[in-house]
Amino acid sequence: MIRILPTEKNTVFFHLAYDEACMKAVKEERVAPTMRLYTYSEPATTIGYFQRYADEIKENTHTVARRIAGGGCWKHQKEIMYSIIAPESYFSQDIQKSYGQIIKPLMQALRKLGKETHYTPLDKLRLASKICAEHAQTRKDGILLQQGRILLADDAQENTDAYCGVGSYEQVHDAIREEYKKAFRAEEGTMSSEEREHAQELVEKYASEEWNTFK
């Protein structure tokens, strides 16, 4: 059984911290595998685990945080984020296939909104030639974490030559949540108090210069 959490708006540090706390809780079988949608309470930039801070962050105008997953530099504006945390055995051992499995319900949801997207490995979803969603995955101690962002249509910052949005928050959020709930047979759940407390402890790490500039 996969639980789907209520959509929550919070800081980028909390959301990154929560995913790490949830990975530990899933590993220790204290909570069910988890799917959640969320938003950031302020504009932020996140960089992939392996990226060099100095190469990616030229102007420090937004909050910056390093993800535990790899992938590229994401300048978050108006978008919906998702995370899926589950034992690796829930998905293909093949990295690319597992990305595809997790992205498929998203494509189906967008199709219902009249947006015919296509997946370009490893981690991009495109509407025509433009990127409308990006994803990053990591695996640790047998637990898979995939984080992704879906760009919204009213995001003028992202409606550039390379990026485009796919709809309003309400449209996209409701369609995606419904489709993932169906595809994963997910049941409504909540964040446990232990997970939230652990996440709050980890917030300091994700906000620290030591973590964000270690490379």
Binding site: Y49, Q51, G70
Partner: peptide, 30 residues
């Protein structure tokens, strides 16, 4: 997939001193 893999290194007498591997690739565990 158009991903970037980068090696940064300092060498001394042909030996690798500091080495960093960076990029937007997938590698696990991180």
């Amino acid at each position: 997939g158009g991903k970037t893999l980068c090696v940064h290194a300092e060498k001394k007498d042909s030996k690798l001193e500091k080495v960093y591997i960076s990029g937007d690739f997938f590698l696990s565990p991180p």
